[in-house]
Design a binder for these strands. Structure first.
Lengths: 144, 144
DNA sequence: ATATATTAAGTGTATATACACATAATTTCA
DNA sequence: TGAAATTATGTGTATATACACTTAATATAT
């Protein structure tokens, strides 16, 4: 049944598969570095904390747009960050809206993981070499 | 507290964050197309079925290496494919080993989703334009 | 002013992911 | 040959992800 192999060979070139594969692999590498900090935090959680450090007073919906993360996914991720004490959440004047912001602990954890994140980032940059800029541009194209 | 924004601005350029973001976004797009097939299958499941169509008689551990997917993750993903009737699993002569292969239903579902996958793939390729080849190469670099 | 529509966020369910640990089969070696 | 080491896989737990549906608050329109 080698005709089967040929028949589906086109599907082996799937961009979605490749991107997911890379995402798994890179995430693990970043997480290994982050673990060295002694903090129980992962790359995804860092990315949300960093987003909150840059833009405050945004609703969950707005944040989810920024992160290209499904709103309900973000809701659950925020819950964990809250439980860990890295963010504080308050309701707005409009009682439907919720606003989260970095807590003191959240800032401290970012300070602590920064050098380890840098190692992961530099290691990854090295893999891409001079293609770095273009690669980042192309990733961006895929998030529109 | 705008010093905070500056302080953590370096972290906004995280490659792990960008790749995960793209992975989420592209996965959703592929899944929307796959949904049009009427089959209850997603891009990740397709990628495993396709892998099985290309390489049979591989253990779960070997497959997990191929897919750069944690072995225990793959175990659970295979369980769902089995439940859906798209793969068949047997033990090897070495009683520890398990081998999965595409079932008749599995092949049929690949046949059925193929045109929808193509639409998703072409749409994604279009976003990348002439950078496609290089982008694929760079993704590969990140899975080593 | 109140019924209706809209909007923001949460919940139920299912799958994806991975680490730490457990189990079972086989291999190795004394 | 039988104990110890190795190997292949599974399970417990926690987080990530997203779709369908729900709830609660606000805005709108008559």
């Amino acid at each position: 049944m080698d005709s089967q192999k040929k028949k589906y060979s086109e599907l082996t070139d799937c961009l979605c598969t490749s991107i997911r594969k890379s995402a798994r692999n890179i995430s693990q590498k970043y997480n290994e570095h982050l673990k060295q900090s002694g903090e129980k935090i992962n790359a995804n959680q860092v990315s949300i904390l960093v987003t909150l450090s840059q833009i405050e007073n945004k609703t969950i919906s707005e944040l989810s747009n920024q992160l290209k993360m499904e709103r309900t996914t973000l809701t659950r991720n925020l819950k964990i960050l809250d439980k860990s004490g890295w963010i504080k959440t308050n309701y707005g004047l409009d009682g439907r809206m919720k606003f989260s912001k970095l807590s003191k602990n959240g800032k401290q954890v970012l300070d602590k993981i920064l050098p380890h994140w840098k190692k992961a980032q530099n290691q990854t940059k090295k893999l891409l070499g001079e293609d770095l800029q273009l690669f980042q541009q192309n990733l961006k194209k895929l998030t529109l």
